[in-house]
Design a protein around this nucleic acid. Sequence first.
DNA 1: GATATTCTGTTGCGGATGCAACAAAAACTA
DNA 2: TAGTTTTTGTTGCATCCGCAACAGAATATC
Lengths: 221, 221
Amino acid sequence: MYETLKKSILFKNFEIEDIKSILKCMQPRIEKFEKNEIVFIEDDFVSEIGIVISGRVCIQKTDKDGNNVIISEINCAEIFAEAFVCAGVKKIPVSCFAQEKSAVMFLDYKKILYRCSSACSFHTALIANMLECLSKKVLLLNSRVNLLSKLSIREKLLEYLNSIYIETNSYYINIPYTRQQLADFLAVNRSALSREISKMADEGLIEYNGSEFKLLYKNLN
Amino acid sequence: MYETLKKSILFKNFEIEDIKSILKCMQPRIEKFEKNEIVFIEDDFVSEIGIVISGRVCIQKTDKDGNNVIISEINCAEIFAEAFVCAGVKKIPVSCFAQEKSAVMFLDYKKILYRCSSACSFHTALIANMLECLSKKVLLLNSRVNLLSKLSIREKLLEYLNSIYIETNSYYINIPYTRQQLADFLAVNRSALSREISKMADEGLIEYNGSEFKLLYKNLN
DNA sequence: GATATTCTGTTGCGGATGCAACAAAAACTA
DNA sequence: TAGTTTTTGTTGCATCCGCAACAGAATATC
């Protein structure tokens, strides 16, 4: 667990021993979730920051027509709910589900922000890391806005695949979503997405098999 | 100017005298812009946080097909570019234009983050405010993702008008955008937006005149 | 105040996509 | 393994919306 925490941005530049003593002071709550289990749901009162210790969770929102949107995927060592807690929002406007069997550590945000006697020396570094977390989340959401503002399903999908390509630098992409989830992420209809994917395969832009994609158009230029 | 700064979240809980001494230490750069003038443009090297002293600027992005998206509007006393600077992004992936005649103060982010001899006592409070700025921006972008994930122009527009209604608690809404800008904000085609707006007026949902809207559906329930 | 420019609404057209229904494939369960 | 459930791809239909073109209104420029 400490190895995972050490990888998280929140504990960047901390040694495992440091993390241990900070946690001793913060008295985090650790909770385990089965696949598809609710971590929290819209309108819950959330006052703690979540850190994924193992597994993977997903932030999403369902509107009154039943349309579901995946806002972001939170992987191991990543943190979530920090912006709402940090901004003092009580009733959280999104839901969170475990995508697979997961463990989550919850930290009281106030204990990060305000000095306590023993964690005092780590305090400043923790806050600097918190700034980094938040600003990275802003960047993530910026790219999300960028994707969602594309007009066609094809453009959205290419934008998404491209972002993974840039991250991994590989033509072979394995996405962490089912078709329905991918549709929810791109904010499009599932069957229309399937249709577009197979059309793109017909045109020789991509090859695919379930959640595995190969980018062919990347070879062209 | 100091009155404006005092209103900004970054200088929350500061007295004007405090702000003056902080600024003396930070040596900000103040620049003036005419309407539609470029504040910065995509791929510029940006290392300073912007605060709008007067007027209004707009963060947007144009893709390779020439489609323009308005990411956010930055009003007087609000700050911008902070997330990119804070996250250490050098080449900024968005552009910024003055929406009207404006003045912008640019602050070196490092001088906020790292203590200097004279501003030392204000340092902690500044960073706490910075956290608030960033978390509020995350919330803003979250609602933006929520809006853009709506399927139809009508839903997007209603989502937008509703958010303003909640903010102002008034049926009478005056939006800060031209039609083209509203279309860019909702990520839809301008003429299709105009069509939908007049259709909604035909159906008695709204009344409008240019950028003035009256919500009629709000009276129904 | 005259002219030029920009903004807005309107409309026809065609294509993209949401939706529903269904069948095949895959994954899960007992 | 057999049966059940979930996931995925396919297709027809209807409609929404992007696009282009244009005209009138509003605004800016001189």
